[in-house]
Each structure stands twice: as structure tokens, then as C-alpha cells.
Amino acid sequence: MIKRVRSWWNGADKQETLTISEDNIPQHVAIIMDGNGRWAKRLGLPRIAGHQNGMKAVKRATIAADELGIKYLTMYAFSTENWTRPKEEVDFLMRLPQEFLAIELDELIEKNVRIRMMGHEEHLPSHTVNALREAIRLTEHNTGLVLNFAMNYGSRREMTECVKDIALQVQSGELAVEDITPELIDKHMLTADMPDPDLLIRTSGELRLSNFMLWQLAYSELWFTDIYWPEFGKQHLLEAVAEYQRRSRRYGGLK
């Protein structure tokens, strides 16, 4: 499968051909959508304009992932640390899921996309929770791409809750300490019914994981780009997948 995309480097308009193998498509791609505020600042716009345009990038990435045959797409939409941002910005971010789904849900349903959420509902406004729950309900029988929003999500909290759950089972006698294995821990994570990400993408030039899926990303391939999230398009996803396919995944062994 050959995709022709346009890429821009150093202000020069270049065209290249990317060859994507249909036999080596990452099953699960996770994305840290970073740079909305800096994109807006560069253009002299308020930060919320960056988040608004970032919503459009979510749709572009979802459609591109579906066309490629990716089965799971996890978007880091709002972290447990994002509550420290100014209230006006947080309030706006809390309205985005409702706005996004009101505009895009019908098309996502047509494309057989299944919506799900990974995170904790407490502290989320009722309008945010209700919009996500309704989207999850309306798409629960879809069998295509799973679009997983990490909302009010933090990996350290996820792992802490996992440890507590297992400790209670040991305390009650349901489990012995010897029963605790990586496979058992997997079953207690919020991604228990999903494969670990094969590929992590982070935009805006930042080179860190920011408390995102720390357990699940143990052997994921990482791809970083200087592109701000509102600029992210199909060609960037293709570039990330092409780079993924050039790598050899050895999982600590030799090939």
C-alpha cells in the first residue's frame, strides 16, 4: 500500500512517497496531543483557540487511523494534572468532548467507530460525563476502530488503584502473593481488554511521557515530532507508522 503525502521541512515544500506495509500496521496507537496553547500563541490567538483547533486534529487522526487499519487509538485528552490549569481553560476543555461528539458522532457511527473512555469520572462535570456515556452507549456494538479517550487519567493513579485492588484480594484470601504476575496486573489496569500500544506519538517537540500509560508503554515504539497538535494530519500519522515499520521490535531479546 503506497501513500503519497506532502511534508514540509525548513519552509521548503517537498513531496515524498511513503510505502506502508499492510502486514505491519500497529494494532494500538497512543497519542499525547501536545502544543495546542503554543500553536495559538504563535498565531496571536487565545489558548482556547488552540484547543478548538486541536479537536479538528482528533477527527483527522481518527479517520486516518481507521483508513490505515489501526484497531485502537488512545488520545490523552485530559490528565489528572491538568486540573492545575486556569479555571477558564479547564472549563473550556471540559466542554470539548460534548462539542466534539455533537458534531462528529454521527460520522463516527457511520464509520463503525467505537467510543470508550479511560480515566476517572469524579470531578468531571456532568455534561462531560453524560456526553461521553451517551457516545459509549451509542457505539458499544460497533466493531471497527476503538477511539479511547484518556480523560481525567493519570498512570500513577491507575497503578495505585491496581495495587490496592490486588492487595484487597490478597487480604481477603482470594489471591496468594505468588499469584501476582504481570499478566494479573494487566487484568487490573484500565486497558485490561486492550493490547498495549505498539506506537506512542507525541507532538510539539516535548520528549517525555507525562504520566501516560507508564505500565502499558514498556515496549512501545516512541515517535516524537515538533508539529503542534492542531497541525497534525494524515501525513504525520503515515510518517510515524512508516518509521515504526523501519524499526525492529526485539522486546529485550535478539533477532
Rank of each mutant, 00 (worst) to 15 (best):
198 D>P: 06
165 D>P: 04
19 T>P: 02
162 C>G: 08
209 L>A: 08
143 T>S: 15
160 T>Q: 11
71 K>F: 00
93 L>A: 01
35 G>S: 03
246 R>M: 10
48 I>A: 04
74 T>N: 06
153 Y>M: 01
175 L>P: 06
217 L>W: 03
195 P>D: 01
29 V>S: 05
209 L>P: 05
19 T>H: 14
200 L>V: 14
106 D>R: 15
246 R>E: 11
99 E>G: 04
115 I>W: 06
35 G>V: 00
60 R>H: 08
40 A>V: 06
11 G>P: 00
120 H>S: 12
97 P>L: 04
91 D>G: 07
19 T>I: 10
178 E>R: 13
67 E>G: 08
11 G>Q: 11
203 T>H: 03
185 I>N: 02
23 D>W: 00
118 M>W: 03
211 N>A: 10
111 K>P: 03
18 L>T: 08
131 A>I: 12
234 K>I: 00
242 A>H: 15
226 D>M: 08
230 P>V: 06
4 R>W: 00
222 L>N: 06
68 L>H: 07
153 Y>G: 05
102 A>N: 15
174 E>K: 14
237 L>N: 05
230 P>A: 05
173 G>F: 04
118 M>L: 15
124 L>V: 04
133 R>P: 00
239 E>F: 07
224 F>L: 10
159 M>Y: 10
219 Y>R: 05
236 H>V: 00
254 L>C: 09
98 Q>L: 05
142 N>G: 07
38 R>E: 09
205 G>W: 13
31 I>S: 03
7 S>N: 13
51 H>F: 03
136 I>G: 01
155 S>M: 13
183 E>M: 10
45 L>V: 00
110 E>C: 02
72 Y>P: 03
112 N>C: 07
112 N>K: 12
58 V>H: 03
78 F>R: 04
89 E>Q: 13
201 I>M: 15
132 L>W: 05
129 V>H: 01
224 F>Q: 01
19 T>K: 12
29 V>K: 01
144 G>L: 09
17 T>K: 11
216 Q>V: 07
67 E>H: 11
153 Y>N: 04
84 T>R: 15
92 F>D: 03
158 E>L: 06
190 L>A: 08
8 W>T: 08
11 G>L: 11
67 E>T: 01
217 L>N: 02
231 E>P: 04
112 N>M: 04
25 I>G: 06
225 T>L: 06
25 I>L: 09
109 I>A: 06
181 T>V: 06
7 S>W: 14
127 H>W: 10
143 T>M: 09
107 E>C: 09
171 Q>G: 10
60 R>G: 04
65 A>P: 10
133 R>A: 08
118 M>N: 08
229 W>N: 02
160 T>Y: 12
219 Y>K: 00
190 L>I: 00
161 E>A: 14
77 A>C: 09
71 K>H: 09
171 Q>P: 02
171 Q>E: 14
252 G>L: 09
87 K>W: 00
212 F>E: 03
223 W>I: 02
221 E>S: 14
95 R>H: 12
14 K>V: 12
140 E>Y: 09
222 L>A: 07
80 T>F: 02
116 R>L: 12
236 H>E: 15
146 V>G: 07
221 E>V: 08
104 E>L: 04
172 S>G: 14
115 I>T: 01
